[in-house]
Write a protein that binds this DNA or RNA. Structure first.
Lengths: 226, 226
DNA sequence: AGCGGCGATTGACTTGGGTCAAGTTCGCAC
DNA sequence: GTGCGAACTTGACCCAAGTCAATCGCCGCT
């Protein structure tokens, strides 16, 4: 890789620590009353890539993954969504990724057309729609930065990101499988597993159960996170 | 990687062939009259990561790269912009990436605040701002899909993308160096070079000069592009 | 208790792409 | 022309992560 000579003087906080302009806070008003709450069971499809984007979704409980599948079967997970997150908002007619429930979920479903109609009248709503899309863009750009790093850096970054998004300070409860993590990070399940045990051996984390991770040395993780 | 069993029935066109909702067409109206045209010389910084985003930019001539630098010096190029493209539009206060002129450029510079003021009054403008951001999101998501592929697939995807964006059908004139391409694709300069000669040996492309590439077998490239 | 079965871990081996080090080509200044 | 430097290419070697395969551990079922 390049050794860039011109460096910015004001380094940005790493993605995992930075407070994203929370999509969860946007669009919380009377708009939500326009929606109906729907349940989805584990692994159920919420919408598919290229389907018409009739609705916007707000996750009430459970967790969701969005993804694309290449025609040779490789899957790339675009994002994980946790309760409070908005997802599935599109500007164009169609969804760009598919969405599935990782575990049983409750989702608030909001008609896109009525929201856009509202935005035509109310610049405040229009701005919130725009902000929500910008939030996704930020997420995607952080994701790109993850994908150019080493396996250890990617896993560290992922753990910090999940930790920043969950309530508990030092303990992360992962709703997704190793396969999901691997497909999010562009690694194999074996590499994710090996990297976690490496970090555990280095006393950086503890893994009491496979879905529960304790951050024992956040500094070390942040250092890895570049 | 995963062998996903549930496949969508309606496969999407690969990114390079799909017609993006062209940012170049958005926001072309009286708004442009609000801007002043500015020249930038080769390698000049147009704006820096984390700087206040006072302006939105429309490239009139030349080409531009946006990028981030990790604190160990690795650089990731976020996008290349060609004449007609808009860049540097932010919803938040600050730029998320830095932007530099790849060659001497002429850029139309538009005040963001006046544009946003206009959007408050005119829902048409508001929607165009939103669409422009959605366009960047699409680009970022396509970029993510590139980064999980093999070197040959990345290079093929890059060539198809550049070809789709340039006027000439079978010939691509690259404004950027091998280092820029490498930092865009998450590869090293050596791997990019080797991959291009591989493709040349396979009669898939021709490389009359290092900045000029002839697509001799677009089908083969598309097949690589997954 | 015993039996599957699935997800996760671990091990042995392979390989694609990175690293380091020469060359080569091209453009430009003199 | 000649000389120089930057960009690019090529070669030899190495290593991080992928592949393939075996094993473990946990949970639910009968």
């Amino acid at each position: 890789m390049l050794t860039q000579t011109t460096h910015r003087a004001t380094p940005q906080l790493p993605a995992a620590q930075r407070q994203l302009p929370a999509a969860s806070h946007a669009l919380t008003g009377q708009i939500e009353l326009m929606g109906a709450t729907m349940p989805f069971t584990r692994n159920a499809e919420i919408y598919g890539e290229n389907e018409r984007a009739e609705y916007l979704y707000k996750l009430l409980s459970g967790s969701v993954r969005t993804y694309k599948v290449l025609n040779d079967g490789r899957r790339q997970i675009g994002a994980f969504y946790l309760p409070g997150d908005l997802f599935g908002l599109e500007v164009g007619e169609n969804h760009m990724l598919s969405a599935e429930a990782i575990v049983d979920c409750k989702v608030l479903v909001i008609k896109r057309s009525s929201l856009i109609g509202l935005a035509m009248r109310d610049p405040e709503i229009a701005r919130k729609l725009w902000t929500t899309t910008a939030c996704e863009l930020q997420r995607a750009q952080d994701h790109i930065m993850l994908l150019i790093k080493t396996a250890r850096e990617r896993v560290a970054g992922f753990l910090l990101e999940m930790s920043a998004r969950s309530a508990a300070a030092t303990e992360v409860d992962l709703p997704m499988s190793r396969q999901d993590i691997a497909d999010y990070l562009g690694l194999t399940i074996e590499t994710v597993s090996r990297t976690l045990t490496q970090l555990e051996n280095a006393a950086t984390i503890a893994v009491p159960t496979s879905r529960r991770i304790v951050l024992r040395n956040r500094g070390a993780l942040s250092r890895l996170n570049s």
